[in-house]
Design a protein around this nucleic acid. Sequence first.
RNA 1: GUGAGCGUGGCUCAGUUGGUUAGAGCACCUGGUUGUGGCCCAGGAGGUCGUGGGUUCAAGUCCCAUCGUUCACCCCA
Length: 435
Amino acid sequence: MKIKAINGFKDILPEEVVLWQHIEAKARDIFRRFCFQEIRLPILEKTELFARSIGEATDIVEKEMYTFTDKAITMRPEATASLLRGFIEHSLHVKQPVHRLYTLGPMFRHERPQKGRLRQFHQIDAEILGATEPGVDAELMAMGQLLLTELGLAASLEVNSLGCKECRPGFRENLVQYLNERQDGLCDDCKRRTHTNPLRVLDCKKADCKKLVQDAPSILDSLCAKCDVHFSAVQRSLDNLNVEYKLNPFMVRGLDYYTRTTFEFTTNDLGSQSAIAAGGRYDGLIEQLGGPKIPGIGFALGIERLVLLLLDKEDSEKVQQSTIDIYIAALGDEAIHFSSALIQSLRVKGISAAMNFSGRSLKSQMKQAGRLQAKHTLIIGENELANHEAVFRNMNTKQQESISIQGDFETQSSRLIDRLNDTNDYSDLYQSIKI
RNA sequence: GUGAGCGUGGCUCAGUUGGUUAGAGCACCUGGUUGUGGCCCAGGAGGUCGUGGGUUCAAGUCCCAUCGUUCACCCCA
């Protein structure tokens, strides 16, 4: 019986990895422009870290975490908690007032897999720590938008404010009261949510609930003066940066630590999973985790979801895949022996080169060279060894010529590289492929 | 946790009202004159039809169970 990957865990095959690298490279480039530094974090953390940050009563903590109960250790379901733990543990705040950090890697949640949702999934996570100014909120959203735009993806940005610990409890109370008075009009899930997570009702997709919620008390009307000023300023800043957004007073977060500004980049092209990136401000969290009183804001992107969107794009999203510089077709044991030394010498000098040790027919080896998209092929057989002249073939033009294989491998490889440089049009070294 | 759908060679799928050695395309290998790729042609290798029961003279084709998987709910990136 064959061993397969476990449910919700997926192999990312070489063809698709090209896309991943494209996404990651683009993200790193954007982060560079916005002055973010990378931080690498462990995948395992103490369970308590997530319980305290994400919230004991959230679905994530309650039933979706991969936990080694005997060791009180959990595989991270998200990145922010770990990042803050690291930030606090190393007292990074003393080095400079504001930190801009990003990290990327696998996250783990034990949910039922479906389209755009895996048990091991990957996120790109960006956080700004130590800045409370609304302009920073806008800047972060602008960065997310730019990343998506440069990846060729259209997503809409929805923005909301969840208030702070001053104003949210009051709002929550009003909302629960409103919902309690209208239980009959709610779906079963929302009846439950009224008690477990009333804000969630605002986000229900059922038509009846949606209608009912339209007239519910609005969080935006309930903000305290400070939150209101902050949120207005965020919106002004977004306008100032030409970031398009939609106000969505019904948007809610699944993690408890969010305060004030929250936002979500969404798309309609992902089936039931509409969020491709989401985040918000969490001003009390660092302190709550035992750190200094420092505000923070951040967001996470789901890489799998980006990949799905890029794969779906019919207008041939093209990603560059490198080809190899030269393929050596060796005929006969002697030639194979010789070629293996020559190819090593080429590789030492930075050339990507392939050969085949099986001694198959020239036709078969040429076929393989073609499959590898080799720019050139060097043919070496008995005759060539005897004459010290190999056949050098340009795979695009099909032109062939003799090239000397005299001297030691050092001089031979140098000669070959000169030859490659002569004919190489470097724009052709990469060939666009559609995945 | 709940619901629905699907499980045939590496991939995408055909397989008529159950009936001889289970097919196709793609991919792979070998040939199409002696040492040359991407097209074409020919041939070849590769499947206990997810697994286990049952019905039947006979099951990939019907029934049950089980496992796997997909999508949706829930939740979320």
